[in-house]
Write a protein that binds this DNA or RNA. Structure first.
Lengths: 189, 189
DNA sequence: GAACGTAGCACTAACGGTTAGGGTTTTGAA
DNA sequence: TTCAAAACCCTAACCGTTAGTGCTACGTTC
């Protein structure tokens, strides 16, 4: 019953807010742009802005569901009998490549420059680690052999790999190196 | 040259603020107590409060330096030729025991109930992981054999162990289990 | 021990993110 | 057509935090 005009308009409003915000942030810097500026430029009320986005930082991480869904699906949608860790390694590789691309550089430079955004990024990743941990623990092929603690720890390690690789000089090599460690940890249980 | 009256008075003011804040937070709940309430009850100006504590959350984590110093010292001050991972395991064991003690329960219940405090706790731990990673990488006995990436990853894993153990049903057992994984990861490099 | 520099604190006023309260228009459905 | 709800608007405020300014008590120096 969806796909009505109302939903399209709502999505358009949301997108206009997000686009305007990102443009202003990149033009003038995150801290130099106020919520009222964004609302004004997007031609919406401040309250409307906050009905679409939970916080100022959420304007920057507009598409964070992607990350969560992709990592979780790497576990749940992998081929039958495919081992867990290599599947995760492949996905993290892709995600790191994606966020270290040249086109993403200005955004990440902005994030790194703002403590508030870095903090938000961290707590987002913690959420992702928890979701991933639950997904791993729920896998019927694994849950017999591994404890829930081991599953949650592995999830954290995987998200750590992403975070560390982003900062490393050679991100792809860092992913490989850390995943060798994760593989050893996973096999040790 | 220190130990003057001025320093004692400053420390007393700081302590009074911290004590008052914690009392009010536990009595009425963190979110129900405003900065102005704390300042009023501690009989100081709001600006004075913020000259002692960088934020409202910092009032709760007054002694977070302890954690950072203890974990770092577990690396730097360990006996010559003592292997790294067991030394860290011992320290994390002690820290987990400390923060899962009954006397600490109300505080942690309060922290878990407040998103702002949880977020602060997370970013604190990330700082600790970075410090620990630097300490591990700086160890002359290790830096030849292990890459900096491996050292930083291990540091993250260790902090993860602390965080996960705190939430686990049997914290001490969780520390042991995760450290078996960390040991395997560390030895695999 | 008197004078001086400064650390610590107070006060006011504001800034910026966020929300409550209450109203208006647009939309989908009955 | 009618109606309920969704989306939006506006105003005014709340709350954490900071700038600006000045006062007072302490440590130091001569």
């Amino acid at each position: 019953m969806p796909t009505g005009r109302r939903e399209r308009k709502k999505a358009a409003t949301r997108q206009k807010i997000a686009d305007t915000a990102m443009r202003l942030f990149l033009e003038r810097g995150y801290d130099a742009v106020g919520i009222r500026d964004v609302a004004e430029e997007a031609d919406v009320a401040v309250t409307t802005l906050f009905s679409h986005f939970a916080s100022k930082e959420a304007l920057v991480f507009e598409r964070d569901d992607d990350f969560e869904q992709r990592v979780t699906r790497a576990v749940t949608d992998r081929a039958p009998n495919e081992p867990l860790v290599p599947a995760l390694r492949r996905e993290i590789h892709a995600l790191v490549r994606h966020c270290t691309a040249d086109s993403a550089a200005p955004v990440w430079r902005m994030i790194d420059a703002s403590p508030a955004l870095r903090k938000y990024d961290e707590s987002m990743r913690l959420r992702h680690a928890q979701t991933l941990g639950t997904a791993i623990a729920a896998d019927p092929g694994l849950s017999q052999a591994r404890s829930e603690t081991a599953c949650r720890a592995t999830a954290r390690f995987v998200i750590d790999a992403y975070a560390l690789a982003r900062e490393a000089a050679d991100p792809q090599a860092a992913v490989d190196e850390i995943f060798r460690m994760i593989e050893a940890a996973w096999e040790s249980v």
